[in-house]
Design a protein around this nucleic acid. Structure first.
Length: 399
DNA sequence: CCTCCACAGGAAGCGCAGGAGT
DNA sequence: ACTCCTGCGCTTCCTGTGGAGG
């Protein structure tokens, strides 16, 4: 019985040749339309080959534009060359979304370099360990900090890591910081800012045509021939273009679309699959955004979503749907709802901080009021359809 | 023009948790 | 085990801002 099920699964036809190659985590050998960026990073890091300290680099750009892929690729190539020419270069990659403090970044870096059982040590001790690791043979250590904006004590971390260059007898430490948060740079200490942003680079979005080309390449290696209709690829490219040229998003669409086709037993991915995939992927995005939110922010979001739901049957005098509220109004409803759920009500001041946080996650958008409204107040609007948010929240918390 | 309203957001301070030092 | 310190989440208080309304 079980054997039969496995047999069936194996023999099931698939549109995929190798679904791993469609995964956003897969780094292809060639990254089209990034030659310029590739060249600049190589130029910045190249001094390491002759034992000089490469400049620190800050890379900024929206999600899914190849920041991580390019940096990792360049560093990998650099290590190959270093071997060939006998230069001592080493690198360590840390995703700060997971390792989001100075301490955790240090632990992670040392772990990856083969140091074990480090928990319990003070961070000064970890720092010493890292220093001696670099100093032992005078290597150049390139530290890649992805999603660097997620580190809580980022100023201290930057200071610590760059200060190490003064204390090292031989060898250097060089930083590559990657972020998709525009505001991040402005929140840095002026001192950290000038160190980290010694060299700076901005990744521009791909346009629809470039996305199409990139997707075609991936489809060729990830899908069987003719398993994705041309119009489906066009649709994915168009959708991604409207999402700031986010390749990761488009790959997720293709991956989901392929799975949907497989499940339905279809031998080609069509527009229909992509449209369904889009709904699923979007819901996943909303879910993951909401999921990481603290409880009290979720309640605020829920309040706004509830208002939006009501607002759909609530037209203003011009017959337009009401989809924007002033913060005082939302706060009133929030206090009512929190009583209803038996939660403590936060002060209006802190409520405003919640709004700011929600805006940071991109779940809501706010604008300052102008004429037609007394004084200055925030006008609050959901960034996603209310039913989508409510659906996700209902599933999660059976509200 | 002046006052009032409705809010924004800074500053101070408070209780608490979790480390570091002793 | 104990104090001390620090950061965090939050409240309270306060000043500032700009349109509405007299």
């Amino acid at each position: 019985m079980m054997d039969k099920l496995f047999e069936q699964e194996i023999q099931k036809q698939s549109v995929f040749l190798d679904s791993n190659k469609i995964s956003p985590h897969y780094i292809p050998n060639e990254l089209p339309y990034r030659e310029k960026e590739l060249k600049s990073i190589i130029q910045i890091l190249a001094p390491a080959l002759s034992g000089k300290k490469p400049g620190n680099l800050f890379i900024y750009g929206k999600t899914g534009l190849g920041k991580t892929a390019i940096s990792r690729q360049v560093v990998e190539k650099l290590l190959e060359y270093a071997k060939k020419y006998n230069s001592k270069i080493d690198s360590v990659y840390t995703n700060c979304h997971i390792h989001n403090t100075q301490y955790r970044v240090l632990i992670n870096s040392l772990n990856k370099k083969g140091f074990k059982d480090l928990t319990g040590y003070a961070s000064s001790h970890l720092y010493e360990k890292l220093l001696s690791y670099v100093d032992s043979d005078g290597k150049t250590l390139i530290i890649i900090l992805d999603e660097i904006d997620k580190v809580k004590d980022i100023n201290e971390l930057i200071y610590l890591l760059t200060r190490s260059n003064d204390e090292l007898e031989k060898g250097h430490v060089s930083l590559i910081g990657i972020s998709n948060n525009v505001m991040f740079k402005e929140k840095l200490d002026p001192r950290s800012k000038s160190t980290l942003c010694e060299k700076e680079m901005v990744f521009a979005p791909y346009n629809a045509k470039q996305i199409q080309e990139i997707l075609n390449q991936r489809v060729k290696i990830g899908f069987k021939e003719n398993s994705v209709s041309d119009s489906a690829i066009n649709l994915v490219a168009a959708l991604a273009a409207s999402e700031n040229g986010d390749i990761r998003y488009s790959l997720n669409l293709l991956l989901k679309g392929g799975e949907l086709a497989d499940n339905a037993g279809d031998n080609q991915v069509t527009d229909e699959h992509i449209n369904t995939a889009r709904k699923i992927v979007e819901e996943d995005i909303v879910l993951s955004l909401i999921d990481t939110l603290p409880e009290y922010q979720q309640l605020v979001l829920f309040t706004i979503a509830k208002l939006a739901e009501l607002g759909e049957n609530n037209k203003n005098l011009l017959g337009e749907t009401i989809d924007t509220w002033i913060s005082g109004e939302v706060y009133k409803h929030y206090t009512e709802l929190s009583k209803q759920f038996g939660k403590e009500t936060r002060s209006a001041r802190w409520f405003r901080e919640y709004l700011k946080d929600l805006e940071m996650t991109g779940l809501i958008t706010t604008t300052m009021s102008g004429a037609g409204q007394r004084g200055t107040t925030q006008l609050i609007k959901l960034a996603f359809p209310a039913d989508k948010i409510l659906n996700v929240m209902k599933k999660q918390y059976d509200l």
